[in-house]
């Protein structure tokens, strides 16, 4: 009975554990190849633009409405016990510490991460990755590292934009629509927001950027089984990225803001 249970856990756990192992191996190859020339600077810049252009409109809209709804909800809620003056700090802290990094990461995972998995998956099933290897090119260096670096750099950049836009959205709702006191709002935003909050949010962003590109590239790079396989790799990449972002967010928060 006990042995059966262990066996059962073993068979269920084997695949995810194997997968985590392979993702770690890929990460190790990235670190090892990262320092070795030639550096694919042109490709990295191209990928950065790709990620920025693909994700910026959605990031802007999401951030501004998140800031607005945060302000709206906390204003009406806090008014019940006369604490509506705190809205500014609620918006600023929530955006920088939590919602800016997480929402931006989810958007980039859904847009750019999915594109990475689809592109690499297509290259795998059409033997383009094999062709690279026969031309004496390391495909991890040529294809994955530029995407990984671009994501690592662009995520914090997008998060800064998202933080600013979110706080502006909160300002707009509180001060212009709900006609609250401007000075209170501004004071509450600045007095309680520490640079540490912003930094920690950006550390999260870097982590999410690295994780989502690693997971998406992994899924695309090891695609099997034709066009259907590419579809599976793409949805798989998005699901796995979302899980990684949301789960690691808790642990990062616990660690960074303890």
């Amino acid at each position: 009975m006990f042995v059966k249970l262990i066996e059962y856990i073993g068979t269920v756990a084997r695949k995810p554990i194997e997968e985590i192992g392979r993702i770690i191996m890929l990460f190790y190859s990235i670190l090892k190849l990262f320092v070795r020339p030639p550096f694919e600077i042109k490709h990295t810049i191209k990928q950065m633009l790709e990620i920025g252009v693909k994700s910026l409109p959605v990031v802007l809209i999401t951030a501004v409405f998140t800031g607005m709804v945060l302000a709206l909800q906390s204003y009406t809620g806090f008014k019940r016990f006369g604490a509506e003056g705190l809205v500014g700090s609620v918006v600023a802290l929530s955006m920088t510490r939590e919602l800016g990094p997480v929402l931006t990461a989810l958007i980039v995972a859904g847009r750019a991460g999915a594109a990475m998995a689809a592109e690499l998956g297509t290259m795998r099933v059409t033997e383009q990755i094999d062709a690279l290897e026969t031309l004496a090119i390391n495909p991890i260096k040529y294809l994955i590292i530029p995407r990984f670096l671009a994501s690592l750099i662009m995520l914090p950049a997008l998060v800064i934009v998202s933080d600013i836009v979110g706080i502006l959205g909160g300002y707009f709702v509180t001060v212009i629509i709900l006609k609250a006191n401007v000075t209170t709002y501004m004071r509450m935003t600045w007095d309680y927001l520490e640079t540490q909050d912003i930094y920690n949010g950006l550390i999260k962003a870097c982590f999410f950027g690295a994780a989502l590109s690693l997971v998406s590239c992994y899924r695309g790079f090891y695609t099997e089984g034709g066009a259907e396989g590419v579809g599976k790799a793409t949805t798989g990449a998005v699901v796995l990225s979302f899980m990684t972002i949301l789960i690691s967010d808790y642990f990062l928060s616990a660690w960074l803001f303890e």
């Binding site: 297509t122 290259m123 059409t126 033997e127 383009q128 094999d130 062709a131 690279l132």
Partner: peptide, 8 residues
């Protein structure tokens, strides 16, 4: 390659 495997 059988399918040419051109970089698209």
């Amino acid at each position: 390659f059988q399918s040419a495997a051109l970089f698209d």
